[in-house]
Amino acid sequence: MPGREHSARAPLSIHDLTVAYERSPVLWDVDLDLPAGSLVGVIGPNGAGKSTLLKACLDLIPRASGEVRFFGRPYREVRRRIGYVPQRESVDWDFPVSALDVVTMGLYGEIGWFRPVRRHHRERAREALAKAGIAELADRQIQQLSGGQQQRVFLARALVQRADLYLMDEPFAAVDAATQRTLTDLLQELREEGRGAVVVHHDLSTVRAIFDWVVLLNLRVVRAGPTEEVFTEENLAATYGGNLNLLAQAGEALRQREGT
């Protein structure tokens, strides 16, 4: 890259990224180098561009400008090393497939054109379902699963890819406590294996417990760095801006954390 050094070791390195809809920017001049093998939380108010950031990195929406590198390479060269967990609401759960079918989809890229899904692929998908704690639901149609179970299906679909870096869009949104624990455990496991995850997260009270690093985002990066340094009341105020209600909640969450 001219002008700026990009670490080839950084799992995700974003340079001058701008995304616009109808000429108004929804992400402005994002510059980030994420540390290897860590759990990164992306925090910010509604409409801050959190999901857009993930999608722009994955070439799902066009970028107005900027460069994105995964492990020093453009996304299309390292697809297999990157896993994506979209928002649960992004698909129609009435679709006629079983949980196992959905998890197997994570292997479609690897299976390749004109080749069928084979027994060993289904075995791997079953293992991933077991890891997500819902092995017994493999043959259920996905509409018959609870919100938390559906999130686990998406998680299993990502795990089966054995990626080195996962981008997850609000995986903790509207899930039960058990699913929340499974998710947290799996994230820890990823980190222990030296893999990483970038997670769009909305629950400020759990940020310190889960993430090593945070990106505070509101149209642009307000602050990014180790959670201990960056996740402060002052920075949250700058991120959430005039939204006093959210700000009060954020302050409350911080005080609770520090009190315990």
Binding site: L58, V91, F95
Partner: peptide, 22 residues
């Protein structure tokens, strides 16, 4: 039949399909 996997995934979750290169 030839593109069964591809039709299934692009119908269910087109964004996921795109990330896999389909």
């Amino acid at each position: 039949a030839a593109f069964f996997k591809e039709f299934r995934i692009t119908s269910f979750d087109p964004e996921m399909a795109d990330t896999l290169g389909i």
